[in-house]
């Protein structure tokens, strides 16, 4: 009983070796390991319009309002109007066929599920995947509420999110290109008398890439931001008659060990606001802004960074929303920003 199969096995093995062909189990290579249910559950974060993937839970706009103001308003604006070039979330209804359409969650997005999915996978910008399901439901509800899609007290949940209809859903259709048929004409293809020639606008190309000292669109985001800040300061100065302070460019600083340790955290987290001055954040390199704050004591500056701050000059969520960072890491980053702004 044992002998026959053994002979078969030996024979098959030798055939495979001679031919060099993989024949085990169809055309499978048997590479990779089974993905366990736990492994899949940890990574399977996607949501579909039919509600597939929604975690059990709920939240409403009232819950979401405070979360939104802490986590989202710095970039998206308190009313979803968008700060600077950050995305506008509200308004724009009825503008899609206008000369300048405003594409927002309310005016453009076809599905509410996309909002939950995107907030959970990518927001807040500096701390993706840091929100609880409860927070995501609340913020989603608040953004839908601001767009007048649900009521303030509507309890958004895994049971009902898929039933919400977005106003613009029916205005999407699947790609029907090619939509243009250009014949391969070789001679007399256009009427010269009716041809129009349009030239490029000046002051748009970021010529700072090519010309030293160019003052129209800069070569980097930082340069562009400084340019716009200075323009805005000049505009305001003309109105108020004040003098413009030139405190934006900082000399390379000698950094303490603590500050050096904070540089990486700064680049990975704080940079988004403190590099650009978003949400009233004191900008790195802006000596005046930092001197004012450090004047009140370094301990206060650090406690604002750790516990959050909200005032007339701007606001900051605790640890900038990066609750995964230790107190020490945040403190180091504060030292880096202060020392880089002398």
């Amino acid at each position: 009983m044992f002998k026959l199969p053994n002979i078969f096995a030996v024979t098959l093995l030798s055939v495979a070796m001679v031919s060099g062909v993989v024949q085990a189990d169809g055309h499978k290579y048997n590479l990779g390991a089974p993905a366990s249910a736990d492994e899949i559950a940890g990574w399977d974060i996607d949501i579909r319009p039919d509600g597939m993937g929604l975690p059990v839970g709920s939240g409403n706009a009232l819950d979401g309002e405070a979360e939104y103001e802490t986590q989202c308003a710095a970039c998206h604006g308190v009313f979803g109007e968008g700060e600077g070039r950050w995305p506008v979330l509200t308004g724009g209804e009825g503008t899609l066929s206008d000369e300048r359409p405003v594409k927002t969650v309310g005016s453009y997005w076809p599905y509410a599920s996309t909002l939950f999915d995107y907030i959970r996978r990518a927001m807040p910008f500096t701390a993706p995947m840091s929100l609880s399901d409860k927070q995501v439901y609340g913020i989603t509800a608040y953004v839908l509420y601001m767009n007048e899609i649900i009521e303030e007290d509507f309890e958004l949940s895994n049971e009902n999110l898929a039933t919400i209809r977005m106003p613009n859903e029916d205005n999407f259709y699947v790609d029907d290109r090619p939509d243009v048929k250009n014949p391969r004409c070789m001679a007399d293809c256009a009427d010269v008398s009716s041809m129009m020639l349009a030239s490029s606008l000046s002051g748009v190309t970021p010529i700072g890439h090519f010309v030293e000292g160019a003052d129209a669109p800069a070569a980097s985001h930082e340069g562009q931001h400084n340019l716009e800040t200075q323009k805005e300061a000049k505009r305001k100065a003309e109105i108020t008659g004040e003098e413009v302070s030139e405190s934006l460019s900082a000399e390379p600083a000698m950094l303490s060990v603590q500050a050096q340790a904070g540089e990486e955290v700064y680049k990975g987290a704080c940079f988004v606001c403190h590099g650009s001055g978003l949400a009233g954040a004191p900008k790195v390199g802006d000596a005046t802004a930092w001197v004012e704050r450090v004047g009140q004591g370094m301990n206060l500056v650090i406690s604002h960074a750790l516990e959050g701050y909200s005032g007339s000059t701007g606001f900051m969520p605790p640890k900038g929303g990066r609750m995964d960072l230790s107190d020490e890491q945040v403190t180091n980053a504060v030292h880096f920003m202060v020392e880089s702004s002398h």
Binding site: D46, I47, R48, P49, D50, M52, L96, S97, P101, K103, V105, Y108, W109, P110, Y111, S113, T114, D117, Y118, A122, N171, F172, Y173, V174, D175, D176, R177
Partner: peptide, 29 residues
């Protein structure tokens, strides 16, 4: 899956708004 997910980068972005206010989606090529 058995249907598309309609995520942010295929609805809010990377869809093509036409003059009439409607929009093409899944304009892959």
């Amino acid at each position: 899956g058995d249907m598309p997910w309609h995520h942010r980068e295929e609805t809010s972005k990377y869809t093509d708004l036409m003059a009439d206010g409607r929009a093409r989606r899944f304009t892959f090529v």
